[in-house]
Computed example of a mutant assay.
Amino acid sequence: TSIMAKDGFLPRSLAARGDRLVFSNGIILLSVLAIALIIAFHAKTHSLIPLYAVGVFLSFTIGQSGLIKKLWNREEGRKFGVLLTVGTGAVVTGIVTLVTMVAKFTQGAWIVIVA
């Protein structure tokens, strides 16, 4: 959150460090959001697993897609093997994300889609 706040995509207060050199406001925000999820799902961890799975695979897909774009834009980075490997990873994690979203939609995965 601190990096996104420095870039202007989140409130600037999330980029401030506290007395112990940690990003206190970000930690507080994440704690409040975690508490809200625990309350919303009545502390049933099996209900929170679809949220985690969709979030993880969506992050992997976005990260690998960004890496493909970065490698494609660099002249020395256009190596077929590397692009094929990263592209395969992006496609596979994208498929897993879609399957998980559809299969677990009613169990709470819609929250990640909305977010």
Results as ranks from 00 to 15, higher is better:
R74W: 01
V54G: 00
F105S: 14
K70W: 06
V22Y: 09
G89Y: 00
P11M: 03
P50D: 04
V91Q: 02
G94P: 03
K104L: 11
H42I: 01
R12F: 15
I68Q: 04
H42E: 02
M4R: 10
I68G: 07
G89D: 12
H46T: 08
L33E: 03
G8K: 08
T61A: 13
F60Y: 09
A36R: 05
I62E: 08
S59T: 12
G108K: 14
R17E: 04
W110V: 13
T61F: 06
N25K: 14
N73D: 13
W110E: 15
S2G: 06
I62F: 04
L83R: 00
A34L: 15
S31H: 06
M101W: 03
L30F: 05
G18Q: 07
L83N: 08
R17I: 00
S47Q: 11
H42F: 10
G18D: 09
A5V: 08
L37K: 11
V102A: 15
T85D: 03
R20P: 00
F60E: 08
V22D: 07
G26S: 07
V96E: 04
P11Y: 01
V114R: 14
I3D: 02
A36H: 05
V102P: 12
I68P: 01
T1G: 08
G94M: 01
L71E: 12
D19N: 03
V82M: 09
W72H: 13
V82I: 14
V102Q: 06
P11Q: 03
A43M: 14
L37Y: 07
G63Y: 00
T88P: 01
R74N: 09
L67Q: 15
D7A: 07
R74I: 05
I62S: 04
V91E: 03
L29C: 10
A36N: 10
A16N: 12
L67D: 03
G63A: 10
R20W: 08
Q107S: 12
R20L: 05
K69T: 09
G18V: 02
S31I: 00
T1E: 03
V92F: 13
G108S: 14
A90T: 08
G66W: 02
L67C: 01
S2F: 00
L48N: 06
F105G: 13
R20Q: 06
T106M: 15
L67R: 07
K79W: 13
E75L: 06
L98F: 11
A36C: 10
V22A: 11
K44R: 11
A53V: 14
L51H: 05
L84G: 02
V86I: 13
T93R: 00
L33C: 05
W72T: 11
G87K: 00
A15N: 01
K70Q: 14
K69S: 12
F80Q: 14
I38R: 03
I111T: 11
V102S: 13
W72S: 11
S24R: 03
D7V: 07
I113H: 12
G55S: 12
R78M: 06
L48K: 02
G66I: 13
K79A: 08
L21V: 06
G89C: 04
A90P: 09
L71P: 11
A5P: 02
L51C: 03
A90G: 08
L84M: 11
I27L: 09
L67V: 12
F60P: 10
T106L: 15
R17L: 04
P50A: 06
T100N: 07
I39T: 08
A15I: 08
S13G: 07
